[in-house]
């Protein structure tokens, strides 16, 4: 079935084609997706709060020149996830930035093939 889908989508001039198989282009997109769903499940925010912020984020991106072709969808998703967590969970954005750099250093000091740990 996915073959047919791909065939039809290839004829779309402006719209990006659907990938065969999972719809996530990269694993981080699946992680970001699942984090939002889980936090919502646990009652940290409602889904309509999420949708409000998400549609605002997309509008903002379009205003800033993002052609919004679907390939930046999870970048918007991640931006909103960071924003909503900052708002609701008292994780400061400085904490997130610092932690990101800690992960980067952890990769750089971990021999190839070993599990990366902080």
């Amino acid at each position: 079935m996915s073959k047919t889908t791909q065939h039809f989508c290839n004829s779309l001039p402006q719209i990006p084609t659907d990938a065969e198989g999972p719809v996530f282009a990269e694993p981080w997109q699946a992680q970001a997706f699942a984090l939002a769903v889980h936090l919502c499940d646990e009652g940290h925010f409602t889904w309509s709060e999420w949708v409000d912020m998400f549609s605002q984020e997309i509008k903002l991106a379009q205003v800033n020149g993002d052609p919004d072709l679907g390939n930046t969808y999870y970048n918007h998703w991640l931006n909103v996830l960071e924003k909503i967590v900052t708002q609701k969970q008292a994780i400061k954005s400085e904490e997130m930035i610092a932690r990101k750099e800690e992960w980067r250093s952890a990769y750089l000091r971990t021999p190839h093939g070993q599990p990366v740990e902080l």
Binding site: A32, L35, I91, W103, Y107, H112
Partner: peptide, 30 residues
């Protein structure tokens, strides 16, 4: 061909890792 490090993943991937590890530490995410 260096084997003494691992190439870090993309910036968004690192952001997700940062977020997830912080949320797990705070007991907000399993």
């Amino acid at each position: 061909h260096s084997h003494d490090h691992t190439d870090p993943p993309s910036d968004p991937a690192l952001r997700v890792k940062a977020l997830e590890s912080l949320l797990v530490e705070k007991g907000l995410v399993d």
